[in-house]
């Protein structure tokens, strides 16, 4: 029984040490694991020069402007701050006003984020179309 006890202590101690080490590594990596920055992050920390990065947020309602055939302009908001985005290319099917979006690109001299790629972000709610209609009718709908 003592040998089993000893092995149990080794296993538990090993797991605690490992968990602690992993926590430290994750903590020190911090921002490097971030997939995208919000407009507020960019405003506070400044945009990285000469390097592409990703910004994410919601497409502001009423901001989408189709300026040419496949040229689109819209505003990304995190409800506190906003950023203008310009993009040339095909938009994903989930792209719409009020929905989440992640754009990769860089900021130009005019302060506009020029995106090379635009990805749509889904939220965690899954509903059939009838439910969306019903919610819109009853005024409970907070999307678009």
């Amino acid at each position: 029984m003592t040998r089993k006890r000893q092995r149990m202590i080794y296993v538990v101690a090993g797991m605690v040490a490992l968990g602690f080490a992993t926590g430290l590594v994750l903590f020190s990596l911090g921002d490097n694991l971030v997939f995208f920055y919000s407009p507020t992050d960019v405003l506070q920390k400044g945009a990285p020069a000469n390097r592409t990065f990703r910004i994410g947020g919601l497409v502001e309602m009423g901001s989408v402007e189709h300026v040419a055939a496949d040229q689109v302009r819209f505003v990304v908001t995190d409800t506190a701050n906003t950023m203008k985005v310009s993009y040339q290319g095909v938009l994903p099917s989930l792209f719409r006003e009020g929905q989440g979006v992640v754009a990769e690109g860089r900021v130009d001299a005019a302060g506009v984020f020029v995106a090379q790629q635009v990805l749509a972000k889904h939220d965690e709610t899954y509903m059939p179309p009838e439910v969306v209609d019903a919610l819109k009718k009853s005024g409970e709908w907070r999307g678009n």
């Binding site: 694991l33 997939f35 994410g56 939220d123 965690e124």
Partner: peptide, 24 residues
């Protein structure tokens, strides 16, 4: 939860109950 990702947060195991209709 910890990082910004392209994945949405949990739909089923979340505070406030599942954010997905029964038929799904």
């Amino acid at each position: 939860v910890w990082w910004n990702t392209l994945h949405q947060p949990a739909s089923v195991l979340r505070a406030g109950g599942p954010a997905i209709v029964a038929s799904m």
